[in-house]
């Protein structure tokens, strides 16, 4: 990973991609879920696979009921790979298929993975999905597959990559123009499509980026913070 040339903007050093999710804005409309399926060649898991609990969603909306009828409330929680700072899935992989990139992302190398699945166990957020069978698209649905994203075969662990193909594309563009990536220039598919703008993505090393401002809010908390995984996603508490 070559370091970006010293660009005009004040913030030196590598990027640290992070996301802020405002639970007060999130309505659970699942636009992000389908946007992610379209962008990242996620397989179509039919009814049988979903019944076996093997539907693959890189981002899912967790719904929690609270209370009894009639004063019952619902909490929606979009959960995706938290790109942890100290990811519990990295030390346990015997082939370095799960490793940490200098950009602060937790990357999954499909070709190295031999399907031991320890990373899936050790992830406290259960966001790692596994390809139990080869994916299948009835023609002509495969015309829609995104050539920038590898189509995974069976026996491979996969997870949200923060749309790394978009990050890399814009980083190369910025590098070509000799500048740093602007705040908001990179938007993963879910961030881009979220109608209520609940999801915000950006470089946390840049103090005045949108995600840094949101992450500093006192409503901010991290999922399962006590485990010390230092997730890269800050949730903003819903005000009830």
């Amino acid at each position: 990973m070559t370091e970006p040339k010293q660009s005009s903007s004040s913030v030196p050093g590598p990027y640290k991609w992070e996301m802020a999710i405002d639970l007060d804005r999130c309505t659970g409309c699942e636009a992000c879920v389908v946007a992610c399926h379209a962008e990242n060649n996620i397989r179509i898991s039919g009814e049988q696979e979903a019944a076996e609990g093997r539907a693959i969603n890189w981002i899912r909306i967790e719904r929690y009921w609270e209370g009894e009828y009639p004063d019952v409330t619902v909490k929606f929680m979009p959960v995706l790979c938290q790109q942890c700072g100290d990811a519990p899935c990295e030390p346990v992989c015997p082939v370095y298929a799960s490793y940490h990139t200098p950009d602060g992302l937790n990357a999954q190398v499909y070709n190295r993975c031999i399907g031991v699945r320890y990373c899936g166990n050790n992830c406290p957020y259960t966001v790692r999905q596994f390809n139990w069978f080869d994916p299948h698209w009835d023609p002509p649905l495969q015309e829609q597959l995104n050539p920038d994203v590898t189509v995974r075969q069976n026996g491979i662990m996969e997870k949200c990559t923060f749309c790394v193909q978009r990050i890399r594309e814009k980083k190369e563009l910025a590098e070509k123009e000799g500048r740093r990536v602007r705040d908001g220039e990179i938007a993963p598919a879910c961030v881009q499509s979220c109608p209520t703008s609940a999801l915000v993505f950006g470089d946390r090393n840049d103090p005045d980026s949108q995600v840094s401002k949101l992450a500093r809010q006192d409503r901010g908390f991290h999922l399962l913070e006590s485990l010390g995984t230092h997730p890269a996603i800050t949730y903003l508490k819903r005000i009830t």
């Binding site: 499909y110 698209w137 597959l145 050539p147 994203v149 590898t150 189509v151 995974r152």
Partner: peptide, 11 residues
Amino acid sequence: RDMQEQPSYQP
């Protein structure tokens, strides 16, 4: 040759 044969259309 795992995953060399991509079902998506390459350039």
